[in-house]
């Protein structure tokens, strides 16, 4: 017991200046990983939007069969760990390398979540808006395109913000299939210099934190800029 305590305190005193030096010497290497992380995030969220937005529209306006198909695919993607999705992509479907697999895995899973965000915001745009559009002679499709969607997209920003940070954090799981993103490279550094474990992971955490923080603030700003005033009419 005492021995365990002693080990623990020994383990805790690993923040040494030399180890920070090691981290900063390899900062370039970690920034390369950061770039991959950002690239992975942007590509996945984009794919998620391209698939998820139509899926959301289908879930609201689609026919029975289409809705059932999209709905079931969503439940499966949302109910399966991203790790399992990655392994399916990498070992079962084998359509590309680790990087492509990560984009498609994160992207499709994100699409399943984004479809829910868009479904919710489309439904929250009142039926009155649809009736108003139909009453000026628009077809259902035109009404969706010109009246419902523009409002729904703006209302989706808070949910989208949340989704984007989730994708950003989950890019770290691409470590499992060997994508050279920030966590993978951090882990490689730590294996090289095991005493620097805390320094390396704290540095990586700081980068992740800056990334999520910037994303949140950026989308906050977008939300304010494009938000629809609720009191006065536009």
């Amino acid at each position: 017991m005492l021995q365990a305590l002693a080990d623990a305190s020994f383990g805790a005193v690993v923040l040494q200046s030399g180890d920070w030096g090691f981290v900063f010497e390899n900062a370039d290497y970690l920034l390369e990983g950061t770039l991959t992380t950002v690239l992975l995030t942007v590509a996945s969220v984009l794919l998620g939007f391209l698939v998820g937005f139509p899926a959301g529209v289908v879930e609201v306006y689609g026919g029975r069969v289409l809705r059932a198909i999209v709905g079931t695919a969503g439940v499966v993607l949302r109910g399966t760990p991203i790790l399992v999705i990655f392994f399916f992509g990498y070992f079962v479907f084998r359509f590309g390398g680790a990087f492509e697999t990560a984009i498609v895995g994160l992207g499709l899973r994100s699409a399943a979540y984004q479809s829910q965000i868009f479904r919710g915001s489309i439904q929250s745009v009142s039926e009155g808006q649809m009736e108003g559009a139909r009453s000026v002679g628009m077809s259902k499709l035109e009404a969706i395109r010109w009246v419902v969607v523009p409002q729904a997209l703006r209302r989706s920003i808070p949910g989208f913000q949340n989704e984007m940070t989730i994708v950003l954090k989950d890019t770290s799981i691409a470590y499992a299939i060997g994508v050279a993103e920030l966590l993978t490279l951090s882990r490689e550094l730590f294996i090289q210099e095991t005493t620097a474990v805390m320094e390396v992971f704290l540095f990586a955490s700081a980068i992740y934190f800056v990334l999520t923080f910037t994303t949140n603030r950026g989308l906050d700003y977008l939300g304010q800029y494009y938000g629809i005033p609720t009191e006065e009419s536009v």
């Binding site: 966590l183 992740y208 999520t212």
Partner: peptide, 9 residues
Amino acid sequence: GTPLLVQLF
């Protein structure tokens, strides 16, 4: 603001 996997590591 940080990934769970990093926290576990």
